[in-house]
Amino acid sequence: MTAFTSLSRAMLLGWFRDRSALFFSILFPLMFLVLFGGVFGDMGTSRLAVIQVGQVPLLEQGAAGLGEVLEIQKSDDPAAAREKVKEGDVVAAISQQGDTLQVSYSAADQVRSGTVQGVLRQVVSQANAAGVPQRFTMTAQQVEDDSLKAIQYVTPGLLSWAVAMGAAFGAAATLVTWREKRILRRLRLAPVALGSVVGARVGVSVAIALIQTAIFLVVASLPFFGLQLSAYWWMSIPLIIAGTLTFMAIGLVAGGLAKSAEAAAGISNLIVLPMAFLSGSFIPLDAAPGWLQTLSNVFPLKHLNQGLLDVMVRGQGPLSVLPELGIVLAFGLAISLIAMKVFRWDTV
């Protein structure tokens, strides 16, 4: 084994055997996912509410039985109705053009929209079977989903927070404990290139971040949460790696300033947690005041969030997040320079 692989192995084993590190980098963020995605997620949509746009004779004919399944609201404004679907207030907007039933639904909630479509198809076929002179058909159409359902929004935000926290804590704790326990000194007295030590730490942090990502995406995609990844989600991988590097640098600054592992964890938390709130990791910034939205741009986490949202759930193309990728890396580079300034080999 080379120095690089054996150091990587030592660090990974150390991380894996550290229950609290495992808890904070994997389970803790998942608890938030359950909280935000599972519990709050259900609060946005009332039970199988649909909105009827204009006159829909078909619905009125079958209204007797339908009332038990669908809660039918009425509107005369097609645009406002579509907006309600997008926002997840209702499952679908239904209108009738001659003998065609038009259904607009949101891809964000496929289970419900599928149920509603099934119900409506039954309505159509019952009407046809009843021998009414008209032959009815149904068309279903997805509304563009630019306002995202809770889980769609929560997953990238929480993932970027989890990765940021894992990378910053990992780097800070390693630096401080290795310095306090004199492992850094011991490594200085071994014929090891500094690059191997740093490289191993970076490699391990990136590996941990990718493990976090995999677990997160698997859990969020469970039917209970129902995350729908868009086509270019894999573009999140370079973003995650860039984010890991940047937050490692933040952790190294924290570790350079701190005198104990506890202090390092505290400083990292003090940096990452408020940043997560102000960058919209937990709560969307869309409703935040303008000055806060402007302020959020000075945080690398905001750009990481933005990039992850764009490629994971908003369905944007792989090249669209290159600016975010560049910004996150630029932050990383600048913070690394600070980290080098405050780096100490030794306690004295």
Binding site: S6, D18, K181, R182, R185, L189, P191
Partner: peptide, 26 residues
């Protein structure tokens, strides 16, 4: 060869893993 202190070990590694890690550095 340098012996610094008893505590200069990688965290949460067994005795065998410690010495094998140091061995591979050399």
């Amino acid at each position: 060869g340098v012996q610094l202190q008893a505590t200069s070990f990688f965290e949460r590694l067994t005795a065998r893993e410690q010495i094998r890690t140091f061995a591979s550095l050399y």
